[in-house]
């Protein structure tokens, strides 16, 4: 139901993002999905990778402010309707979405979601019988 996500603190400074990507590139890490959110002062780079433990250890080793956490990974159809149905289910359960991004694999889209209530979100997924990815599924993207 969840996959590992690495969040990296980015200063709004020239070259910061590419420095971090170079670091991952040299270690042959595959990036499956990535998103950057930012304020005027700083940003957060969020990535899903094929080998999160190794990537996280590497970042720590290079003294990067990073965080490893679990996020929901829900499989849906690529049409907007698929997205809408999924989100509606959470909304109906009284949950709010803190952030969301997605990546596509063929006709499917994978929604990466963080809600304000993890346990309730899991319950929604079970009840609605939603399709989802687990950490092991990510190895297929190798």
């Amino acid at each position: 139901m969840t996959v590992n996500q690495i969040s990296i603190f980015l200063e709004n400074k020239y070259g910061t993002l590419s420095e971090i990507l170079m670091l991952l590139a040299e270690a042959n890490i595959r990036i499956i999905a990535a998103t950057v959110a930012d304020t005027s002062e700083y940003g957060i780079l969020r990535i899903i990778v094929n080998d999160p433990q190794r990537a996280y250890a590497l970042l720590k080793e290079h003294n990067v402010s990073a965080n490893l956490s679990d996020v929901l990974a829900i499989v849906t159809h690529s049409e907007a309707a698929g997205f809408a149905r999924t989100l509606q289910a959470f909304t109906k359960a009284g949950l709010t979405i803190e952030y969301m991004y997605c990546f596509s694999a063929g006709e499917k889209s994978i929604l990466i979601i963080r809600t304000n209530n993890r346990e309730a979100a899991r319950e929604v997924i079970r009840r609605q019988n939603m399709d989802y990815l687990c950490e092991n599924d990510l190895l297929k993207f190798n």
């Binding site: 996500q5 969040s7 603190f9 959110a37 304020t39 700083y42 957060i44 969020r46 720590k60 402010s65 990073a66 965080n67 956490s69 803190e98 963080r114």
Partner: peptide
């Protein structure tokens, strides 16, 4: 001020 290792994934926590 530099952040330490303990870092959150969440903007609102940072703010």
């Amino acid at each position: 001020v530099e952040l330490s290792d303990l870092f959150t994934d969440d903007f609102s926590t940072l703010q």
